[in-house]
Nucleic acid binder design. Structure first.
Lengths: 206, 206, 206, 206
DNA sequence: GATGAATGAGTGTTCATTCAT
DNA sequence: CATGAATGAACACTCATTCAT
């Protein structure tokens, strides 16, 4: 997966993991290459030997993790599914599970989403654009419009649904900073996802 | 408005404007006090004479601009209005107009909203909390629930409406980075706000 | 006492006291004029109006407090006394009492004694020289040499006695940093002064 | 001796020497890292690469030079010697010779002895404590008390002897600031050390 | 006389990147 | 291939002194 010249795969992995963690925790600017090499237990030189600059490291990471994430979604999601709520719930659950398993990955992706540093902003947007075109819109392009009530602008309805789940996810993440996730509130969260789903279905569906 | 000891008001203004701009464009961390004093055309010393630290400058700015913004909202909004769509449309329009007049102010507030730098995060949250309690929730506390259809969870419906307009605003802002706002798309944007309003009303209201 | 041009005596006093304290606690270099004016509750300008520079403030202070101290010694000491032990014991006790009443004064004088900052070092030495010549050596110039045993170099013996009490004072001061002085150890200290006196008398006197 | 990771020993030496000199001449506070790197002819970065802060540089220096000094004393002193005058004369001579060879070292150690800067004071005391316990008191713990005259408090007598030589050393050092040491006064100084020794022996010994 | 706003060189420290080994 | 020593510009912040009011 990673475009290695001659990379020792174990060392590769250590750098990837360390960089993901450090970038996720600090954002692009605050993350120092020193912290990354220290966390990875490798030398300074090797980092710049493989990735030529901090920027390239970040963007490579972003691209690869985004792809990994998209693949996961693509593989685990029933591609025949045409009900938008089922699609979004599916995505939410996959995201939720990945967060339990690879919190750094999800945190990195989220922090990248709102990264402001000009050195990488453009690069992020380009990668995001490419990915969105190739896989993300696909997700929403096949929606079964016949389930919506007459007179409803389906495109806009989909946007509303999307923003709702996005807003909800942000809300949960904000909470998660103070309260640690455990089984108890996992149930609660899923229940609340269902409430929003029901409400939107009742409103938009026939 | 600004707690100046005896600041020359013109110099005060230059510092405020410069800091707002530089912070808005770079976020807390990347923004350098050097860039601010250069932009403002003042000496290094004077900045620290009035604001004791970069952190204090940022937080003072945030507090004052938030208040200014909240006041504007408070003054221009009909406080008798109990229809949530009218409230949110009002807020959106005020925001929109302020962005045309003081783009740095709005950009600063938005960037503060998602600021990650630990030096100021807590401070931002505190100020936000104080403001939200005193004025923002007030906005939504008085909603006329009788307009909603039977069986609809009004609290959740309000959240959806809020997230929708928030998502829309973000979308517009993202576009605005590449395309400059002009009269033409102002009309379009307002039209689209209306479309979303109609759609949500049709779905949630009796 | 202080060479005031037109100084408001009450303001004068506040500056003097504040400067003594701040210099005593921080030494010349670390003491900031800001801290002094803040402590004194006066404006920055007035400090530099009366004393033209930090250096002049320090040296003026040093000179005046030294004189004050020398005067106190001179007044309270029996000038007819020709026994060196009585003289030194007298000085020690006066110092000790002054420390209880004006700790900043004594602390300032002590810190000045070992001040390293080149801006003031020379000035201190000059003042010290002048004072020592005019009053301090006088103290020791009149010693009754006949009390010493035959064959003893009286000048050197006096030096030894002087260094002993100086060393003892430093030792006490070092202790005082951790333990606060109270009545109990005041007695102890005086007792120990007496022991050293006895020992030296037994050794040097006939 | 110095805990260098992989320091080029010649560069190491330059930094050490420069820092010793600059600290000795200015004390902790006034000594600037700029002055040190300039004196050493190295880059700013490298100083902080090896020593993480000015404080650490100072304390490392202090510890190493103290040890070096203690070792020298330990090695050159006859450990069987139980006559306090011989011990102290030995120490004085070693100190004197070291001052001729490494004046900065001795000056640094002396200035550290009376360093007031709060950033390093505690650290100095800790190191001093550790050293004193391990080696210095050892020097005085084995004194032959039988040489002292009857009725003399040996502990106090030792203190007097110690303070005398300390006072003498300070006096010489103060002089040395204005007059440079040369062979001529080396002889004089040793002669004077002998006079004080004789006087104290005559007074305290049987 | 009295104020405190204003200056700008100076401080300790950080950091991405390079390169001799 | 791999190391980590080395660089130096940039950073936030301080401070004695001046001067318009």
């Amino acid at each position: 997966m990673f475009r290695s010249l001659n990379m020792d795969p174990e060392k590769e992995d250590r750098i990837i993991k360390a960089a993901t963690k450090v970038f996720a925790e600090n954002g692009y600017q605050r993350a120092s290459t020193n912290a990354i090499v220290k966390e990875a237990g490798v030398s300074k030189g090797i980092l710049f030997h493989y990735f030529n600059s901090k920027k390239e490291l970040y963007l490579t990471l972003y691209e690869d993790l985004s792809e990994l994430f998209a693949e996961k979604i693509y593989n685990q999601l029933d591609s025949e599914e045409r009900d938008i709520f089922e699609i979004i719930r599916g995505v939410s659950i996959i995201k939720f599970e990945m967060f339990s398993m690879y919190p750094d990955l999800i945190n990195f992706l989220n922090s990248a989403f709102q990264e402001e540093a000009p050195e990488v902003k453009e690069g992020i947007d380009q990668i995001k654009g490419a990915l969105t075109d190739s896989s993300f819109t696909k997700l929403f392009s096949n929606i079964d419009a016949t389930k919506f009530r007459e007179g409803i602008d389906v495109g806009k309805a989909i946007q509303i649904i999307y923003w709702t789940f996005e807003g909800f996810a942000n809300q949960q993440q904000a909470k998660a900073r103070t309260i640690s996730v455990n089984e108890l509130n996992k149930e609660e969260i899923l229940a609340e996802i269902n409430s929003y789903t029901e409400l939107l279905k009742k409103s938009f569906y026939k």
